[in-house]
Simulated assay, not measured.
Amino acid sequence: MNKTKELSLKGLLIALVTVSTMVIKVPVPATEGYIHLGDSMIYLSSILFGPGVGLIAGGLGSALADLLSGYGHWALPTLIIKGIEGLIIGKIAIRSRGETSVRFKDVIAALLGGGWMVAGYYLGGAILTKSFIAPLSSIPWNIIQAVGGAVIAFPVLFAILKTDLLEI
């Protein structure tokens, strides 16, 4: 892929993660945050286009959503957490050109990336609140976020892989 296409793809995926994070928000009072569709787009970006794209789209897209949604105090932790989430998923799910099926390692990648996200937000919450107790309430909600993202991403991934959309 040439540099122009790569830059365009990254920009579009950053926007997709941002918008999907912001469009549907289910507030979670226990965490002062919200459940959203953004993780599904991080899974798709990382599995389809690899760790570099996952890192950029996940980190920048999610941090931008925090900034635009009034969660600016979470923007830096989110940049790191979601960027690493995309990187983990992309590294595990690295795909050969022309592969057209969802693989077991894609599921493992989503589980490990989602697991990192849960742990990362726990640690981020511990740093922000200066307590290892307070962010414990975020764990179940972040697990729901990670699993929900996978439940949305995998049928979409299956459908995309059955088309010729990736022949850029």
Rank of each mutant, 00 (worst) to 15 (best):
I80P: 05
W141I: 00
W141K: 03
L111I: 15
V107P: 04
G58N: 15
A134K: 08
P140S: 06
H73D: 12
L157N: 09
I42G: 05
G90Q: 12
V53E: 10
G148A: 05
Y122F: 07
Y121E: 02
A126V: 00
I160S: 07
R103A: 14
G114R: 13
G115M: 05
S131V: 06
I152P: 12
Q145F: 09
A146F: 02
F158N: 09
M41H: 08
M41W: 09
H73C: 11
L64Y: 01
A146N: 01
I81E: 05
S137T: 15
T78R: 01
L128W: 04
L68Y: 06
I139W: 02
I92W: 11
A119C: 07
G124V: 04
G70I: 07
A150R: 11
L112N: 10
L68T: 01
A153H: 04
P51S: 15
I143A: 04
G90C: 07
A57W: 07
I144G: 02
E99Q: 06
G70A: 00
G113Q: 06
S96A: 15
Q145W: 03
L136M: 15
I133C: 15
V147M: 06
M117K: 02
V102Y: 13
L112R: 13
N142A: 02
A150M: 15
P77I: 00
I160L: 11
K130M: 14
I127E: 10
L37V: 05
V156N: 12
G98E: 14
R103V: 02
W116Y: 10
L112I: 15
K105M: 10
L44R: 05
P51G: 15
P155E: 01
G149T: 11
L128A: 11
I139C: 00
I92M: 08
G148S: 00
A110N: 04
R103T: 02
L68S: 05
I84P: 10
